[in-house]
Design a binder for these strands. Structure first.
Lengths: 252, 252
DNA sequence: GGACATCAAACTGCATGCAATTGGAGCGCC
DNA sequence: GGCGCTCCAATTGCATGCAGTTTGATGTCC
């Protein structure tokens, strides 16, 4: 049996949605690195819309955690802390275990073929850039989520997977994607066989190893904002006794 | 040990955020029922802002799944299908198991007191309206999530809990909250004792029973939109052979 | 009475304009 | 050189205005 009936999900073809999709893709392909500035004017001009629309799009992406918005400041691509990255992976593991649990033994031949086709594409892209490999690997997981036909699950898996992508560009050493591809194939096989426990274990291990490959150092703080680094210390000072910090150039 | 250091989360004091918070609360307290119309003009006037801001707020709430936005149509409070409600609860169970797993044995005395205080408040509210009981019960879970100090987890648990609230007003028979309160107390006790497996089991059972109490009938379709109900059937007809339906008054 | 065409009010989609805030270059002072 | 100050360009926060779409009420014909 092929999961559930289809549902009218996905984003409409608003101008806002178009911009969101474009920026999302740019972010996960690391064309836009964490910390990159996203001025409303520039976005509007680039996409041929007014600032109003660009602003709205940034709001949506901020809700997804891909963009950081601070009042009266230029929006920037989010720069998750190491701990946030770890948290994102933990959540992702639980969500994707749920995905494969729902899917085990319930996929049609067509769906399995589609999954295999996607992994083939991942294979072919091995010669290309890391960015494309990472995007394809992420899209494999999103494709799986889609097959549950649960719009909510799709949304959360997509979101958290994008966030994890974001952390890869911050904390990961150069990506080696072969093992990931093999693990994807193993997951498909277990799904087809319908071995629920096995596929959940496989997915857990797969994501855990991706996370461990990515999040190597506990506190690299490469590219972190000074204020973020100092935030915990700021809790100690009272408001009327402000510590003056020496001026340090931040990356821009 | 008291979980992690605090973090600058939570929404800023934008006008947009204010409206979002107000609407969220109105929705989960069922002052705004699923299907209720939310015209931009009216919201703007009510909150003393322009339509631009109201619109932006609606966009945010739509991203959270509390509001449904269709092009050129008045925004309405979301009306999740029975299946979506079930999906939301399934996801919620996994997320909240993660919450209590992270929290087991790691809460400070102060935090435990805070949790007990909240349940006391739930107890006192038993005489009041269902709406307040439901809100307090939901806030208990969000309070737990906050104690993990994982902003991402807080966001997802909050969102999915709000969505579950929404379904309660659609599909639930009159709420009986006593058992829920007892279960909350049991969870606190197990958390304090640090019994990870036990507390995960308790939370799982708690949410599952809430879901089962709420989602009684598989297809009540009370207050469902005609078009949604007919959507699966519409897949059968080809586009050039449109079935004309008799005019039926929809609730407005 | 009921189906259909017509039209005005209501509403959304979006761009533009203005005030307020920020950030950083330039400049004087130590 | 380093530190603080002033000032202006860049940028955001928000309201308003206009065009296009939907809604539903009315009138007309069968």
């Amino acid at each position: 049996m092929a999961a559930r009936a289809s549902s009218k999900t996905s984003e409409s073809s608003d101008k806002v949605s178009v911009i969101c999709r474009a920026l999302r893709r740019a972010i996960i392909e690391q064309a836009l690195e964490p910390g990159a500035k996203l001025p409303e004017d520039a976005l509007g001009e680039r996409f041929g819309v007014s600032r109003t629309i660009a602003r709205h799009a940034l709001g949506q992406l901020a809700a997804e955690g891909l963009v950081e918005l601070r009042r009266n400041r230029i929006a920037v691509v989010a720069t998750p802390s190491w701990q946030e990255a770890r948290d994102a992976f933990d959540i992702r593991i639980e969500l994707e275990r749920l995905v494969v649990r729902q899917l085990a033994g319930k996929l049609t031949k067509v769906q399995i073929a589609e999954l295999n086709g996607h992994v083939d594409a991942e294979d072919r892209a091995r010669g290309g850039t890391d960015a494309v490999s990472i995007r394809l690997a992420t899209e494999f997981h999103i494709l799986l989520a889609h097959m549950t036909n649960s719009p909510i699950l799709v949304r959360y898996v997509s979101e958290v997977a994008y966030r994890c992508c974001l952390t890869l560009s911050l904390y990961s050493r150069p990506h080696s994607s072969e093992c990931a591809i093999n693990e994807h194939r193993a997951i498909i096989a277990a799904l087809a066989k319908g071995d629920e426990a096995k596929v959940m274990e496989l997915m857990h291990h797969h994501l855990d190893s991706v996370a461990n490959r990515a999040l190597v150092a506990p506190a690299p703080q490469r590219g972190r904002d000074l204020l973020d680094i100092l935030a915990p210390y700021a809790d100690e000072v009272t408001s009327d006794r402000v510590v003056k910090l020496p001026k340090i150039a931040r990356r821009g």
